[in-house]
Each structure stands twice: as C-alpha cells, then as structure tokens.
Amino acid sequence: MPLEAKGISFRYGNCPWILKDFSLTVNRGEVVGISGHSGCGKSTLARILSGYEEPQLGTVTLDGKPLPRHGYNPVQLILQHPEKAVNPRWRMDKTINEGWVPDQEMLDAFGINDNWLKRWPNELSAGELQRFCVVRALSSQTSVLIADEMTTMLDALIQAQIWHVVTEIAKKRNLALIVISHEKHLIKRLCQRVIEM
C-alpha cells in the first residue's frame, strides 16, 4: 500500500515552477533515495508529500486516500535543520511528547539523556536536537518516514547507530522510508533505488 504522488506541479507565488508534472510511488518496506543539486526542490517535495504544502496541480495519496488533515500525520518529515523544527519556547519534554509518548527504550536507543528533557532547544548541540526530532517522528502510527538530510548534523558513529536503529524499525513495522541526501555513500548504503531530481 503505497504513498503516491501524481502529476505534481508546484511553485512559490509567482516564482518559476519548481516541480512540473512530478510523479512518485513509494511502497511500504521500500527505502528510496532522493538526490539533486541544492535548490532543486527536494525539501519542497518532502513538504508536499507530507501535506505541509499544497501543490497547484496533482495529488498526494496514502493507501489511495488523501492525507488526513487532522490528528497524527502518518507521513512524518524530519527536517534538514533541527533548529527550525522545534518550538523555541517549549522545553524538550513538551516537544518530544507532542505527538506521542516515546518509552524509555526508544529514548535509550537514540542516546537521549534524561537531563536534556528539561532544557530549552538552544541548550542542546545540533546533533542532540536532531535525535529528538527523529524520535518524535517514530510513533507507531507513522507509516512513511521522510528523512531530509537527517544525519548530516551527526558524527559518523552516531550516524551509523541512528541509521541502524531507524532501518531496523522501518523493517519491523514495514514503513516506507524516503532518504534525501547529498551523500552518495550513505544513499548507496541505505537505499534500494534513487531518484535524481
């Protein structure tokens, strides 16, 4: 049961078209890479696929139905810059429990320390903050995970750890995983196919 984008065209205001008649199908259990030069529209596509941006033309469906407008979004997006993805006026415990309440095992798997929970986001390192964003996206209701440059802010060791955990979860829950990255080595490690934009 796939995530399907059909005939998507998109532009910001009167700016030039960024996507024109773009189509994509990602099945459950698949890991698909997306790469392309900076500014070509990868993050825009990711926002459209997860329902945060409305295309001028075309449709996005999950299991044949439009994305739900209320409640938990089954298509979860992890943003390129974690500092832009969290509310600066919320402490981390509020942010992480916003959509669902992760158990201790989940927090441990991502190395999230108890005493980070009471901090403000600007009191964490970039990589620490990004790990919160990953956990936040992994509720049991998630069926598609879009990782937009998810681990460029992490050191190689944690990057390897996080991807092992995430791909394990994706396999176990039969998630669709979309990996946006400029790192060809990483894409090669993770993805079954790659879309060049």
């Binding site: 190689a156 060791l157 944690i158 990057q159 390897a160 750890q161 991807w163 080595h185 490690r189």
Partner: peptide, 19 residues
C-alpha cells in the same frame, strides 16, 4: 569514528558519549 564512515565500514559501536 573513522571506521563508522559510510565509505569505510559503517559499523557503529554500542553506547553513547557519557553526559
């Protein structure tokens, strides 16, 4: 750290940096 690079072995080490 060197061995964990995707272009090397991509092997993680268990555990995290102490806080």
């Amino acid at each position: 750290l060197w061995k964990a690079l995707p272009q090397n072995d991509f092997i993680p080490v268990s555990g995290f940096q102490p806080s």
